[in-house]
Amino acid sequence: MYLMSHTHCWMEAVVFRSWQSHEAPKTMPDSALVVRVPPRDDPPAAEAMSLKADRLIDAPLCPKGLILMCGEMGSMSRDLSEWADRMRAVVMVVSEKRMTMDWLREYAPRLDFILVDSDYLGDTETTIDFCLQVRRAVPSLPVVLVSSEVRSHDFTCERMMACDVTLKPPLLQTALTMGVQAAYQNNEYYNSALA
């Protein structure tokens, strides 16, 4: 498997086991997989804080350092992991069947955002139902939906009842950066509309 041969894979088990033993409840999904753990040496400040060199953002997009992906290991998790490397974040891949809403409610404050793979979930109805459950459980958690069924990326609030942005695979680095940035803004707007 590609990700298991990743140079940082030896750190995955140690850090995940440590994270699980100190923070995760007994109901944490058994199939949770940490895709990448970034090295802990201190990089130059500009690299650690943003993609300022790329002139896309001025602030870190993953300040908490943990991204949850609802899906399975494959090309999408690899694309997300490569992007997460630049953000110094960890990606956890979990099946929707293993992810309880109680667990998500409890640990949402530790997550930067959730990425939902619509193609993994199957039909549109199942995907929308799952996104609505996530939205009801933790409205403050930005939801990035990825679907090959959409014509193009949608960074607007048009689908805000279910998600904050919709991206079309493959997940290119620039599209992910712009999508996550828009997801934070759209989620803030969604929550202000609820108040």
Rank of each mutant, 00 (worst) to 15 (best):
I128R: 09
A137S: 14
V144K: 00
R159S: 12
L145V: 01
R136G: 06
M161T: 12
E125M: 13
V144Q: 05
R151F: 11
L141F: 00
L145G: 01
F155A: 01
D123V: 11
C131D: 10
V138T: 13
T126Y: 03
M161R: 12
L141E: 01
C157H: 13
V144I: 15
P139V: 05
P142Q: 07
S140H: 11
E158Q: 13
V146S: 09
D164A: 09
S147N: 05
F155K: 04
T124D: 13
C163M: 08
E149A: 15
L141A: 01
T126K: 12
V138L: 04
S147K: 03
A162I: 02
V144S: 04
V144P: 00
E149L: 15
H153C: 12
R135P: 04
V150L: 05
T127V: 15
V138I: 10
T124L: 15
D119L: 04
C157M: 14
S140R: 12
R136H: 11
P142G: 06
L145Y: 03
H153M: 01
G122K: 02
V138E: 04
M161D: 10
I128C: 04
D164V: 02
G122D: 06
G122S: 11
D129W: 02
T127K: 05
R136W: 08
T124S: 14
L132D: 06
D119Y: 00
P142D: 03
T126P: 02
S152E: 12
P139I: 06
A137K: 04
T156Y: 00
M160N: 09
R135K: 14
S148F: 04
C157A: 12
T127S: 13
Q133F: 05
E149K: 15
S147P: 05
F130M: 10
V143N: 00
D154Y: 03
S152K: 13
C131N: 08
T126C: 10
D119R: 02
S148T: 11
D129H: 12
F130S: 05
T124P: 00
L132V: 12
P142F: 01
S152L: 07
T127D: 06
S140V: 12
S152P: 06
V143C: 07
V134D: 05
H153E: 12
S148P: 05
E125H: 14
E149H: 11
T124I: 08
S140I: 09
L141P: 03
F130W: 15
L141W: 05
G122E: 05
L132G: 08
V150K: 03
L145H: 09
S147H: 08
L145M: 15
V144Y: 01
S140F: 14
V134R: 03
R159M: 13
V146G: 00
T126D: 10
C157T: 15
S148M: 04
Q133W: 02
E149R: 15
E149G: 00
Q133T: 10
S140K: 11
D119N: 15
V150S: 01
E158N: 07
T156N: 09
R136A: 14
D123G: 14
E149V: 08
S152I: 01
T156W: 07
T127E: 08
R151N: 11
E125P: 03
Y120E: 10
V146A: 14
S140T: 14
C131W: 02
D129C: 14
T156E: 08
T126R: 15
V144D: 01
E158C: 08
C163Y: 00
C131Q: 10
V134L: 06
T127W: 03
S148N: 10
D164N: 13
